[in-house]
Design a protein around this nucleic acid. Structure first.
Lengths: 148, 148
DNA sequence: GTACGTGCAAACTATTTGCCTATTT
DNA sequence: AAATAGGCAAATAGTTTGCACGTAC
């Protein structure tokens, strides 16, 4: 969802008990704006392109702090060697991944909502996000496999 | 499921068009025996302990080859800095993860089976596995958050 | 015999850390 | 002013690769 109205990064940071800095706001705004899984380097490069220049280590530290407070989630993304981060409640991006050729299909719907509500009650967790990857072989790679 | 009867690693490798070697058989057997998410290093150390000694690079190469053929799947596991591998069709290990303290609860049931069948039809994929992580804050960490 | 797999060490890449300065509260 | 965050460079850790030798088929 690209056009999501800009979030109040400062408020989010305050709530989390973190100091509000230019760097952290920029990182949070970018993540919410894109609603994609981004790596530390993705973020670093995109912000640099926009003229917001600062160290890569800062990006890593910010992401770690936000993840620990449940504002972001982290997951391995096939096709990227890096860990990727995404805003916990605003990005349910599920993927169907071909392990043969690496093709990725992004799925819109999420079958898990009810299940998550059940888990919250059972374990007294406050669930902030989830990550779901489905692996398989695409039509093309299924054919190849037969020939081997 | 620990007691799963030993699989025929050689047959699996042949089917996949890979040569059958001592190393590959040992790796496959371990993964199926444990039915857990194991990192390359986990595998390397465990096999070394059992007297099966060989290079860590071999483990990485074997895992990559098996993943590409859909026999194994890979996913990032919270609490481990490494990528972890698991037998695609035999290990539905879902997790509820506290992002505050890192505690992990392993979940038994899988809400996704029907959904997966639907996807197979829609996208003509042969689905070989999936990975599902749920993030949140455990009761303890929810309390702490309020105080900050 | 040939193609493919392995071992070792070196190379790479992603991520973390130390230390000192800058900024927020 | 105190506490926390940022920048830079060095350190670490995970993973990949080149090359010579070994093994499966």
């Amino acid at each position: 969802m690209k056009g999501m109205s800009k979030i109040d990064a400062a408020a989010l940071l305050k709530e989390a008990g973190l100091k509000v800095t230019r760097q952290r706001q920029a990182i949070l705004e970018l993540l919410y704006e894109q609603a994609l899984h981004l790596s530390a380097e993705d973020i670093y490069l995109e912000l640099k392109k926009r003229g917001e220049e600062f160290g890569l280590a800062t990006v890593y530290r910010t992401l770690a702090a936000l993840e620990q407070r449940g504002i972001l989630n982290k997951s391995e993304q096939p096709g990227s060697a890096s860990q990727c981060y995404f805003p916990a409640p605003h990005c349910h991006q599920h993927q169907l991944i071909c392990t043969g050729c690496g093709k990725i299909i992004y799925l819109e719907d999420c079958p898990a909502e009810n299940y998550l509500r059940t888990l919250e009650e059972t374990y007294h967790f406050q669930i902030t996000g989830h990550s779901f990857q489905i692996y398989g072989l695409c039509p093309g790679c299924r054919k190849e496999e037969r020939h081997v």
